[in-house]
């Protein structure tokens, strides 16, 4: 079965990103397909490579990046939500005249249409948030 995932909260403050990650891992282990993970609202903060959690804690961002690399996951950060919250890739930084980008490996920035498309293409869409 094909699953679409929506993550509405950032890392650490809320459990939403942890639950979504464990759900995705378990779905993949059962042989399901993850069509896309879409990050919206503060969820876009899951995609910054500049997080440095304490060494004895899980690295939520890195964990998503690694899972994406291992399973070719499509991790999409909403462009409008990302711009509000200062999450940039190289081309967005350049387009907006910013001096840095911060997107983590495996994530890409795109429009809200990608969320709707995930709803259309997936057999199930599951929302994680607060």
């Amino acid at each position: 079965m094909k699953f679409g995932i929506l993550v509405n909260e950032g890392p650490y403050t809320h459990e939403a990103s942890d639950t979504a990650y464990q759900f995705v891992k378990a779905a993949l282990a059962k042989g399901h397909e993850i069509y896309r993970v879409f990050f919206y609202h503060d969820g876009v903060n899951n995609g910054t490579r500049l997080t440095v959690p304490p060494q004895d804690d899980r690295n939520i961002v890195k964990r998503w990046s690694e899972l994406a690399a291992e399973h070719k996951l499509d991790l999409v950060v909403c462009i409008a939500a990302a711009q509000r919250r200062g999450l940039m890739d190289k081309s967005e930084a350049k387009r907006n005249g910013k001096d840095a980008d911060n997107i983590a490996p495996g994530f890409r920035i795109s429009g809200l249409g990608q969320l709707i498309e995930a709803g259309i293409q997936s057999d199930r869409l599951v929302v994680f948030g607060d």
Partner: peptide, 18 residues
């Protein structure tokens, strides 16, 4: 901000003719 960002999805989603 949830309500506003929710409405933004509705407006974008309308183009998909669902």
């Amino acid at each position: 901000l949830y309500a506003l960002e929710s409405l933004e999805v509705v407006l974008i989603g309308a183009a998909f003719e669902q």
